[in-house]
């Protein structure tokens, strides 16, 4: 009986895994395809990788995407943390419920609407004050910050409400003024949340296609826009290579994060054992 159930579970697991990963595995395999026509196997080759590194267009898109992602993540973390702090820690102020609802609205808003509204906003702004002069990196970054900060604020809010307020009260009790408490106690304890928020904002920006395509200008293609516009003209083996590199990078990142988490967990276990003895 038990054996039967475990084979059943195992096959379900295999099916689920296959569903998730076969497309990606195929993409990786075909990136090593010699043939220029994607679905036809022409033998093993790394020539699309070499070609990829020669293409200036791809390099430009990659650096632009990374630049936007870093700036976006940094500003979104700053603003999102401030919003989260205000909503959780500053007691009940007038309209708090509305604010906290509004801050999480971008999470459920269709991207098309966010993109369209931002585009109209930038055009209106340009007509009124003459800035931003043209759409490009600046407008994409601003657009990304507006929606990523909502994600950061949500992370910070949940982290803060799980954090006992008595720590901050204890610091006050020991003579720290509120501003001091923020830097000595609140922010250090929020660091993991802020790091998580930064990483999330970074990946959100790196992933985004829809909003960026609304607010981008000529010659400011981010990596997702580049990939999409090329694939639209037909499947191309060098894009497979690019995708494979992205998959590999993400996988390495996840592995490192996992390794750090396991190490921390083991250390914590050891500490607790030390405390008990």
């Amino acid at each position: 009986m038990k054996k039967q159930r475990s084979t059943f579970l195992f096959s379900v697991l295999c099916f689920g895994m296959a569903f998730l990963y076969i497309p990606m595995v195929m993409l990786v395999i075909y990136s090593f395809n010699y043939s220029k026509i994607v679905p036809v196997w022409g033998g093993f080759s790394t020539r699309w990788y070499a070609k990829l590194f020669e293409s200036e267009e791809v390099w430009n898109a990659l650096t632009l995407s990374l630049q936007i992602a870093v700036i976006n993540a940094t500003f979104a973390t700053l603003l999102g943390t401030m919003a989260g702090l205000a909503l959780v820690r500053f007691g009940r102020f007038r309209g708090r419920t509305i604010f906290s609802g509004m801050i999480s609205a971008p999470l459920v808003m269709p991207e098309v609407i966010t993109g369209l509204s931002l585009l109209m906003f930038f055009i209106a702004l340009q007509q009124l004050v003459g800035w931003p002069e043209k759409r490009g990196m600046t407008t994409i970054t601003i657009a990304h910050i507006t929606f990523s900060l909502a994600y950061v604020a949500v992370i910070i809010q949940s982290r803060l409400s799980g954090m006992s307020q008595s720590l901050e009260e204890a610091a006050q009790d020991l003579g720290a003024k509120p501003f001091r408490v923020m830097f000595d106690i609140t922010l250090p304890l929020l660091t993991p949340g802020m790091m998580a928020g930064w990483l999330l904002a970074f990946t959100l920006s790196l992933d985004d296609l829809v909003i960026a395509s609304f607010v981008k200008g000529p010659g400011s293609d981010t990596l997702p826009i580049l990939i999409y516009s090329r694939v639209r003209l037909g499947l191309r083996p060098d894009i497979n290579a690019l995708a494979t590199i992205i998959i590999a990078t993400v996988a390495v990142g996840v592995l490192i994060a996992g390794w750090i988490m396991i190490r921390q967990y083991k250390k914590q276990k050891a500490d607790q054992q030390m405390a008990a003895s």
């Binding site: 008595s166 009260e169 204890a170 610091a171 020991l174 106690i185």
Partner: peptide
């Protein structure tokens, strides 16, 4: 933070 009292919290609130 200006009172001449200190408090020991229930959950200790150690940093």
């Amino acid at each position: 933070y200006e009172r001449p009292v200190n408090m020991m919290f229930q959950s200790y609130a150690l940093f």
